[in-house]
Design a binder for these strands. Sequence first.
DNA 1: CAAAAATCTTGTCATAAGACAAGAAGTGAA
DNA 2: TTCACTTCTTGTCTTATGACAAGATTTTTG
Lengths: 195, 195
Amino acid sequence: MAENLDQHFLNKVFEGSGITKDELQVIIPKYKQVKFNKNDYLLQEGQVEKKYWFIESGFIRSYIIDTEGNDITFNLYASKDVVIDYPSIFFFSPTRENIQALTDCVCWEIKLEDFQEMFGSISSFREQQKSLLVGSYFALKQHSISLIADEAKVRYLRLLKEKPQIVQNVSLKHIATFLGITDTSLSRIRKEISN
Amino acid sequence: MAENLDQHFLNKVFEGSGITKDELQVIIPKYKQVKFNKNDYLLQEGQVEKKYWFIESGFIRSYIIDTEGNDITFNLYASKDVVIDYPSIFFFSPTRENIQALTDCVCWEIKLEDFQEMFGSISSFREQQKSLLVGSYFALKQHSISLIADEAKVRYLRLLKEKPQIVQNVSLKHIATFLGITDTSLSRIRKEISN
DNA sequence: CAAAAATCTTGTCATAAGACAAGAAGTGAA
DNA sequence: TTCACTTCTTGTCTTATGACAAGATTTTTG
């Protein structure tokens, strides 16, 4: 069976994880390509989501509106990131976040039940997904620690180092709220760094 | 069978969750009372934990040492809180936190496999645990948002309102790092509020 | 109990970051 | 192309919070 050209991205994602060709034949068909247009919502507050996504291309953010009406970006996602809402996944509990495409996006969607079945039955898939999910969990935790321990410039430099594509493609105001500062301050930090 | 006096706390925890007396007979024996002395570790960085705890009495904190050597309190726990490390639970991944008793504590320990079995087979237990875990997850998330959106005084007042026992029983420096400020600032905030 | 250690308060000064406002630059649409 | 809209930069001023240090208070320990 000739490899679907579209699935080249998925093959790359699973490459080098010890997943065999035979296993890939099982895994890849569970993923469905979905395209989002700029400003589309993948998920809105109050929904329970029974799927999650890999991003092939494009940029996505999750945000909440806090009690004072501030729009706060909670996470920023780029190519190869996994977009997942833990309360939905583990507890079938409605999300409190909005997840929105910042640009046109190509994503790969997988249903939770398919995920769970393969997680149980294919050990190489389990290991690969485990490290992906743990990675994204710790990245957020690290960010939360950084909000306490580091000054804004350090947080910006870390983001720039770890996710340069995001810094280049996401608007200042979203990056700023993600970093816990105003867009004015972020603009000044950028200037200072460029000197 | 006479109710073990020690288990009075557990009975209260499960009270009003729609759990029947018969179910309680199955659930409660899975919990084991454990006592920790002040400064004992429940869990240290690098361990994988296959259990979690309810606190009956005492105070516990989780903390990390960041790359600059700062000791940062990540969460503070009091009576009736559940102390759980998600990466351990869901991914059998080593924790990156240290969890330490701040005072002598009485806890109820349950093994993950027992938890998972009852989570699957006893729907009232599932619902009760779900809301407990979701509650603790969102509390942390809310705190993270608060670090971005609110000034320190607001964060302190929120903690005071939601967990007054913690404010009264945990040292300033741990509360301060949890709130993302220095103990000096927290001392001033306290003074300002008392006026 | 006394000494040592840890915790908390307070003072002074420095600074990171916010608030607000104006304008520049870029983007999109009719 | 032009007008509207959003995004980004910059200036001025204010303020929340940190850094450091000295005392006061409380707790721990020998």
